[in-house]
Design a protein around this nucleic acid. Structure first.
Lengths: 243, 243
DNA sequence: CGAAACCGCTGATCTGCCTCAGTGCGGCAG
DNA sequence: CTGCCGCACTGAGGCAGATCAGCGGTTTCG
């Protein structure tokens, strides 16, 4: 085992126990580091995509725009997450990716990705695994928008975000730093920004959590879990699943 | 190339050009055929899953139940679709799978799946591909629930379903047979059954489509596409993506 | 063959969230 | 220092879709 690992290797390592050869193959993928400023899209809907990205630092969101102009944020990505895997597989992007903060990411050309998959099937499995976890999150998100009211939805979303950040060492049980504006939250949760504001106020008045000045502080974890019907098993597991 | 292919092999073949060795490996996976009656769940939330399934005939839905009792249908599966891949990867199911009609499906034990993936990386890529297409559908579904009103949502859903069925030879441009009840539609679209009924009536009164007696008939395809802001590129492509 | 269950369908009423139309504050460019 | 812009925040009013309550037809089953 190598001593220092990227967040990405750490995440994959949680799925599949990785050999040194596999780890150094990952490091090779991880080489081409780039910096993106906040606000300018990295990938556009419909654009043909030759590369995927691995997020090293900063936050991004993936979203879709309808011709009517309204947008739906599908997911936020945090360090260690894989970006645009689906776009690479389909050779064209079906969604946009926008950096919320300044972002560092490694570019992974499609060719390198496929070569690595062919020569190291276990890595392919690991990536499939990571992609499945992301899909599980999208599914949870779908359930949230379809069947939870605004307050439950917000609570669930922030709990999930907290759990994800904790996994990569960017949060604790009591809270986390969060660069999302109420407008971004609204686009993610299928609400209006006005209503997001009211819901956050309600959560504050109920002494459940505070979201102010880019900081989420959790006051009553049990209360939130109860309200949101939150079950973190889909994010968590104990040790590598494939040895 | 083998002359006769299962719907599943046909679907994967659309993603990756498959050799005879790979096709016969698929046939081996496809062997263990089982029949399930309508209504009794094949997989339960939280249950540990040792097998995935490949749907040969009939319709199923995957859904999640909240402790409050309300349910959200995440997706419907039709012949050729893969069931429970994520459940196998995580070793426990995070959702339920219920047959809507009587169903024939091939059981694929996790062990066989992993072995096939290790020895035939191209098959792993193909499955990753198919899984990505399914995720793209879930994403589109998410956008629908978050940002489309009931009528647009219904139109989009039925257009998508029609396109999928056409791909496996179970529908035409003018319509398709559809065993879904209005209650199932409601649970899928995050609406009440009452409202589903009204929306279907509106679509009928607008001469866009008719959904009666288990049959969807499309009267005005262009009108529907316009209303739903439907873009089928995420379902379609020309020829295998990997040769 | 009657009862129960399911499904499609409808009118009336209620409500969660949207839209509109603002105010106030902090950061930043000129 | 001033004016602008983005963001958090608020009240008033409106509407899409939920909920409640009920009818009629068809299938299933004791």
């Amino acid at each position: 085992m190598l001593a220092v690992q990227s967040p990405f290797a750490r995440k994959l390592g949680a799925f599949v126990a990785l050999s040194d050869t596999e780890l150094s193959a990952l490091d090779r993928l991880y080489g081409r580091r780039k910096v993106f400023p906040a606000g300018r899209d990295i990938v556009h809907q419909g654009q043909s995509a030759q590369s995927a990205y691995i997020l090293a630092s900063g936050w991004v969101c993936s979203y879709k725009i309808q011709t009517s102009g309204s947008r739906q944020i599908v997911d936020f990505q945090i360090p260690g997450d894989f970006l645009g895997l689906r776009s690479v597989l389909f050779r064209t992007a079906d969604h946009n990716i926008e950096p919320i903060t300044q972002v560092e990411a490694s570019e992974v050309p499609a060719k390198d990705l496929f070569e690595t998959f062919s020569t190291m099937p276990r890595l392919a499995t690991a990536v499939l695994w990571a992609a499945s976890r992301d899909e599980a999150m999208v599914v949870e998100h779908l359930v949230g928008i379809g069947r939870r009211d605004a307050k439950e939805r917000m609570a669930h979303f922030l709990l999930e975000l907290g759990a994800r950040l904790k996994l990569v060492g960017l949060g604790s049980a009591t809270g986390f730093a969060c660069p999302l504006t109420q407008y971004l939250l609204a686009d993610a949760m299928g609400l209006s920004a006005v209503h997001v504001n009211r819901v956050l106020r309600e959560l504050r008045e109920d002494d459940l959590l505070t979201f102010q000045h880019g900081q989420v502080t959790i006051h009553d974890l049990d209360g939130l879990v109860l309200l949101a019907d939150f079950d973190k098993t889909y994010l968590d597991h104990d040790g590598p699943l494939l040895r």
